[in-house]
Amino acid sequence: MTLSAKPLLTTNAISRVFPDGTQALDNVSFDIPQGSITSLLGPSGCGKSTLLRIISGLDNASAGDIHWQGEAPETGEIGFVFQDATLLPWANVWDNIYLPFRINGASREAAKAAIENAVSLVALGGFEQHRPHQLSGGMRMRVSIARALATNPSLLLMDEPFGALDEMTRFRLNDDLLRIKETINCTIIFVTHSVFEAVYLSDKIAVMSPRPGRVIAEEDIALTSRDAAIRSTAEFAQACGSISALLTESEAP
């Protein structure tokens, strides 16, 4: 896809110093193109998650700010997928996806269509009455994604969502995410420490340095296709290679 010229949001010199003096982010500036999947890629502890929390409003920047194209999203207009599925263990799949609606005061009847749609997007039809402990790790993550998408957010934040899953499940969910992205109008910011995952999924990658995190490169990724076959092409390997080189550079003293 071609990236639209207008970014959905621009982070403007964001820094974050925690009360204990740890500097997590240092002067981070980059654009998130509207409608794109943008990955924040960097080593563990580089402040990727902190950056995501600041964008979501869960945390505040110590300095700098975020410019939104148009109006800043209101409460509930941002979807968030955590590294763990983060489901209510005592509630079944349907009720877990219903949670954002319930908080917003919507009746079960009013939320029904959106929930059914989200369930079918993540291919969980027939599992609505299952409790989280009855599902595999990959399926739990699908529920988490369905919950985030059901409210039709304009921005979806994903914090290493597939990091704890096995590789097969991870590949499948990568493909599912790309497939889902085709059908929804949503900008996705995806945090990962996997170069392959970032290249496979992203329209754009922001490469971050070790702590204190800075964005050291913003790379557009233009693969000719995105399917399982591309993973074994020279084109894919080359893209991964150049991103890896940037990461290695950033870690050099």
Partner: peptide, 17 residues
């Protein structure tokens, strides 16, 4: 779960909810 608490906050849940 702190993540669930964050989720509730993100969707603007009241203290009571």
């Amino acid at each position: 779960d702190p993540n669930l608490k964050d989720l509730f906050r993100l969707y603007g849940a009241s203290r009571w909810q």
